[in-house]
Amino acid sequence: MIVIENLHKAFGEVEVLKGVNLHIKPQEVVALIGPSGSGKSTLLRCMNYLEEPTSGKVTVAGTPLDGEANINKVREEVGMVFQRFNLFPHMTALENIMLAPMKVKKVSQEEAQKKARELLERVGLADKADNYPSQLSGGQQQRVAIARALAMEPKVMLFDEPTSALDPEMVGEVLDVMRSLAKDGMTMAIVTHEMGFAREVADRVLFIDGGGILEQGTPAEIFEHPQQERTKSFLSKVL
């Protein structure tokens, strides 16, 4: 579904990604863990070209990303959920979800609204359709953000630390939605600090450190039997 070949990304002098290769299969759930500054968010953001790779190749659903030419087309297939939600504050929850399908896919207003209500139902917020983001809790905002991404019917969902900005008691409701997505067979790449969640939901865990994938494997392999010293020391601090 996503194929990354020899991906390099530098911000000025600082090289953040140093030749990453990664192949995410359809319906696979991949968790990216690692210390902050390791490049895991940058790697995720390269998957929908929010960061432009310095070199290397990213292919999404068979389409190679090559800059502005096809980027909007590819982004329709790739949903993204941000740490800080990034809901549109001047629109209601419903309008947040309806906007992109109407403007990008030229879906009719009625159809967009029907779909948006279904999605709000799915994330458990049917009664919040007409609320503005400022009237919702963090957990509710993030669930609306997930619904907004799903409205484009993406083939892949990218999550960039989706629970890091939430109060602890709200983390569960967001993870529940993500868990059900995974169960329904959505292809997902998740940057997360929720080790318990990664262990439970991910098919594969990538330990990212120093701008590359240092170690990867099933949750059992990574969490029970890490091979690398860096992985062991990281896990001992966070588990």
Binding site: L50, R75, E76, M80, F82, N86, L87, F88, K103
Partner: peptide
């Protein structure tokens, strides 16, 4: 305006102008 707004819009497939 927070640059996350532009990123959110672009990541949904909308153009820069939209």
């Amino acid at each position: 305006i927070d640059k996350g707004q532009m990123e959110a819009g672009r990541s949904l497939g909308m153009t820069w102008v939209q």
